[in-house]
Simulated assay, not measured.
Amino acid sequence: MKHEMAELSMRNEELEKELRRANRVVSGAWEQIDVLRHSSSWRATAPVRAFKTRLRGALR
């Protein structure tokens, strides 16, 4: 029983480390998206994206 508890505790620690690592990756991705959306190129291409969205809606 103690052996099983120790194994489960180790597995739990491994999963927590993996979760922290995944959260860092996701956080980094959100930061990159935020940088992109605040870039001058994103603002400059906004009219093109808006037109494309309207065109897509009109073709449906």
Score class of each variant (00 low, 15 high):
Ser40Gly: 07
Phe51Glu: 12
Glu13Ala: 15
Ser40Trp: 01
Trp30Lys: 08
Phe51Ala: 13
Val48Asn: 04
Glu18Ala: 15
Glu14Lys: 13
Arg43Trp: 01
Glu31Asn: 12
Arg43Phe: 05
Arg37Trp: 02
Met5Lys: 14
Lys2Gly: 02
Gln32Trp: 08
Arg21Met: 06
Glu14Cys: 01
Val26Trp: 06
Leu59Asp: 08
Arg20Ser: 15
Ser40Val: 04
Asp34Lys: 07
Glu4Trp: 11
Ala44Glu: 09
Ser39Met: 12
Ser39Trp: 12
Val26Met: 13
Lys52Ala: 13
Arg21Ser: 10
Glu7Met: 07
Lys2Phe: 10
Leu36Thr: 11
Ala46Leu: 01
Val26His: 09
Arg60Leu: 04
Arg37Asp: 06
Glu7Trp: 00
His3Lys: 13
Arg60Gln: 08
Ser39Glu: 13
Glu14Asp: 02
Lys2Ser: 04
Ser27Cys: 08
Ala6Pro: 02
Arg21Phe: 07
Asn12Trp: 04
Arg21Gly: 02
Ala29Arg: 09
Leu8Ile: 07
Arg37Asn: 09
Ala29Cys: 06
Ala46Ile: 01
Arg49Met: 03
Ala29Gly: 07
Val48Gly: 06
Glu4Phe: 13
Lys2Thr: 00
Ser27Tyr: 02
Ser40Gln: 05
Glu31Leu: 10
Asn23Pro: 00
Asn23Thr: 03
Trp42Ser: 14
Arg43Gly: 00
Phe51Arg: 07
Ser27Trp: 00
Leu8Ser: 08
Lys2Ile: 00
Leu36Trp: 05
Ser39Cys: 10
Leu19Asp: 06
Arg24Pro: 00
Asp34Trp: 03
Arg20His: 12
Arg49Tyr: 01
His38Ala: 03
Glu14Met: 11
Gly57Glu: 15
Ser39Gln: 11
Leu59His: 13
Gly57Ala: 14
His3Phe: 10
Asn23Gln: 13
Pro47Asp: 03
Leu8Trp: 04
Ser27His: 06
